[in-house]
Simulated assay, not measured.
Amino acid sequence: MSLGSHANVYNTCLLILRDRGFKMHVEGELDDEGCYPTDLLWIAEKDGFRFMADNPIELLGLVGVYDHMQPSEDRPYWWRKEGEDVRDQIMSEAFPQGDAGDE
């Protein structure tokens, strides 16, 4: 089975966030024809922490970082996990002839 990032997953992500006690809202401006904006900022808040993303899937992902790191206070870079650069490893494996920017 697989799952991909698509708008048809948005409501599930929002329901999960609501079930976890997050208060949510969006920010944006209606277009000239009164239609919903395409560039909304999705916001979830709980216990003094605020998460902002371009869509509900990303929002749930950021909350996943919060759940994993379990910060006790809002301090700078509370979300940072130390370790090797996994992104670079994955990119090097996928594109062994590519340039990793080391010019």
Rank of each mutant, 00 (worst) to 15 (best):
K23W: 01
A44S: 07
E45N: 09
P76E: 09
M1L: 06
E27C: 07
G4M: 02
H6S: 10
L17E: 01
V86D: 12
D39P: 04
G28P: 08
V63R: 02
A53F: 06
K46F: 08
L17M: 01
D32T: 05
Q89R: 12
W42T: 04
E27G: 08
G34C: 12
Q89Y: 05
P76I: 05
D99E: 13
E33K: 10
F22L: 11
G4A: 04
D102I: 12
C13F: 01
L17S: 01
L14H: 00
E73R: 11
G101M: 10
D88H: 10
Q70R: 15
L15H: 01
L59D: 03
E73Q: 14
W42N: 03
K46R: 14
E73P: 04
G98M: 15
Q97V: 13
F22E: 02
I16M: 01
K23H: 09
S92Q: 13
N11M: 03
E84A: 08
P76R: 04
M69G: 09
L41I: 15
D88F: 06
L15S: 06
E33M: 11
P96M: 08
L30C: 10
A7L: 03
E33H: 12
C13Q: 02
A100D: 14
D19R: 07
L15C: 02
F22N: 03
R18P: 00
F51N: 07
Y77W: 07
Y10C: 01
E84R: 10
D85F: 04
F95H: 15
F95D: 15
L62P: 00
V26G: 05
D102M: 12
L15N: 07
S92K: 14
M69Q: 15
S72M: 14
I90S: 13
P96A: 11
F22T: 03
F51A: 09
A53K: 00
P37C: 05
A94W: 13
D31H: 06
L60G: 00
M52Y: 10
D31A: 06
W78L: 13
P56Y: 05
P76W: 05
I57R: 03
G21F: 02
P96S: 09
Y77K: 05
R50A: 05
W78A: 14
F22I: 04
L60W: 00
G83W: 06
W79H: 15
W79R: 07
W79S: 14
E29H: 12
K46C: 08
L60C: 01
D32V: 09
D54W: 06
A7Y: 05
L59P: 00
I43G: 08
L3H: 01
G98N: 13
M24N: 03
E103L: 08
C35D: 15
R18H: 06
A94H: 10
L60V: 01
V63E: 05
D47W: 05
W79Y: 15
L15R: 06
